[in-house]
Design a protein around this nucleic acid. Sequence first.
DNA 1: GTCTATATTAGGATAGAC
DNA 2: GTCTATCCTAATATAGAC
Lengths: 201, 201
Amino acid sequence: MTAEDTAAPARRGRPGYDRQQVLEVAVRLFNEQGYDATSVSDLAGELGVTKSALYHHFDSKSAILEVALDDALSGLESALDDAVRSHSDASAQLRALVRGAVGVLTARQSRVTLLLRVRGNSDVEQSALRRRREFDQRVAAIVRAAQAEGMIRADIDAAVATRLIFGMINSLVEWYRPGGPVDPDELADDVLRATFDGLQA
Amino acid sequence: MTAEDTAAPARRGRPGYDRQQVLEVAVRLFNEQGYDATSVSDLAGELGVTKSALYHHFDSKSAILEVALDDALSGLESALDDAVRSHSDASAQLRALVRGAVGVLTARQSRVTLLLRVRGNSDVEQSALRRRREFDQRVAAIVRAAQAEGMIRADIDAAVATRLIFGMINSLVEWYRPGGPVDPDELADDVLRATFDGLQA
DNA sequence: GTCTATATTAGGATAGAC
DNA sequence: GTCTATCCTAATATAGAC
């Protein structure tokens, strides 16, 4: 209904998954139980196949994680690039970025959730962390510039402000559920209002 | 210097840990690597003792987790109780709660971090989750009441507002470090300003 | 309070048939 | 694309001595 882009001829019988379907279920399980707490057996059980079948789709458990993390990072980086490209002043870029980030978090919720929980326990996780730190630094630079432009109040440290804003945004993955009662666009508006105008009446 | 309440006669030689010291190191490791990714061997290695030595202090790995989670939850519950007891109107209670929660998060950072990452993979985790949900519901009720009092803007859903506020607060555990450049009290002020007045100049 | 075994199970991963 | 069988390692936990 929503995403069936690949030209895959919609499988029928119980068994018979493609890479995308495996990825989908894996990411969901990783989020429900945590990556480390999810065994390949768990995943196989959830899909109703054996462990061996999974190794036909992915070389390793961490290869699944790698694909998911790349997807999340690409989304966030694109949102940042778009925001920077579409606006010349930092204040407008920041607003666009907040809206874009909320968009990515709601659209790719499960993969971004995975990204935000990465601790650096493997090469895959460490390289994702590096890439995420680069993203964070670019964002911090924009917040600093927006403060210099007078958009962000001067009585708060720009680095702290950056973390508070994205702390609020990132926390969405903990409760937002696609298809739930909260509309993604309205949510973006709420976050913009909450961060910049405040929740006080 | 800070917490040496127990009457333990300050050990000397390398080996020789008490429960508190083991707990301290365990919680730090759990946060660095994730609970599931941290083996009892890792912990033993970090302490410079064998695995068996650890089982002298705690019955199981999850027993360590249980103590840490209880401490975090107790702190948050106390902050909530204090806020409710000290103020009669919801608006003041909410402000006191935000300040108190930031205080608990900064003072018991490592244990609260652990709590916020719990997924419910065991009985210990599930009972912590239940207790946390109770806390969340009490908080949501206060936010609703504060909105009814006219303190919180009416154009945002109270449940969403609650999650945004505590999303920002809880995100502190991701970057705040005791003894670092950010003062806990100033941070509480910043969070109050950011959530209620907004970050806009 | 710690140590040297050791039991036991589960985990990630591979070989090769269907 | 999936299966059975299997390898190998690492994980939690225990027994009993020092």
